[in-house]
């Protein structure tokens, strides 16, 4: 029974949502909305469970005087401060807006900017013309990188045109191929889950 119930729930919910998407049957839309509300409720409980896991792990670090106990302390303090500001004062209150504007926003932007540095070092480390294919990747990469920046025009007026052609012809063709095959693959995975063929996520891995 432990094995069958989750599969039955998945199948019924999956078929219901598919029917709702494709059909205008009165009542189905409300039912689908209700199912989505349930999903939000389940997500809230999952969040509580995950938050407990996070807090417990970092509390363990602190009590065990782990070498990163200070980091764990900082994490717990900021987590509880944000939770208290959001729950007790509301997300439009000054305390929460302060956290959002002065901590979350600059930290997020800093991390996004970090990708630029990692990208630079990855390009320096990995872009070697070791084979014909690698050389093609290297050359097209440089053309696109320079051609898409304003400096491309100054280097050679044809460079931006080449970059645009590369992006809109060979790149687009490849992207479309990957998108279409991924989409079919995604539909396949979803159908396999709905029909109960795939059930690893339920802790029912194959031998």
């Amino acid at each position: 029974m432990k094995r069958e119930v989750p599969i039955i729930v998945t199948t019924v919910a999956g078929i219901f949502m598919i029917l709702e998407y494709f059909h205008n049957i009165p009542g189905l839309a409300n039912g689908a909305k209700e199912l989505q509300n349930w999903a939000i409720l389940v997500a809230a409980f999952a969040l509580a469970l995950a938050a407990i896991n996070l807090a417990a792990r970092h509390l363990r670090n602190i009590t065990a005087r782990h070498q990163n106990a200070v980091h764990s302390g900082l994490l717990l303090a900021s987590m509880f401060a944000t939770v208290i500001a959001g729950i007790f004062f509301g997300t439009d209150a000054r305390a929460f807006v302060f956290i959002f504007d002065n901590i979350i926003t600059p930290c997020g932007s800093a991390f996004y900017a970090m990708a630029c540095f990692h990208l630079a070092s990855a390009a320096y480390r990995a872009f070697r013309a070791q084979s014909g294919q690698a050389a093609a990747l290297l050359i097209t990469g440089i053309i696109v990188m320079l051609g898409r920046a304003p400096i491309g025009d100054l280097i050679h007026p044809y460079l931006p045109k080449m970059a645009t052609w590369l992006m809109q012809v060979p790149n687009l063709a490849g992207m479309r191929a990957i998108m279409i095959s991924s989409a079919i693959g995604m539909i396949g995975v979803s159908l396999r889950i709905i029909t109960g063929i795939d059930r690893t996520h339920l802790g029912m891995g194959q031998e």
Binding site: V42, A43, A46, L47, L49, A50, G203, G205
Partner: peptide, 13 residues
């Protein structure tokens, strides 16, 4: 959060 219990189940299994 939704992925957390599933992954724990999968790894434990």
């Amino acid at each position: 959060p939704n992925v957390y219990p599933l992954t724990e189940q999968v790894v434990r299994q």
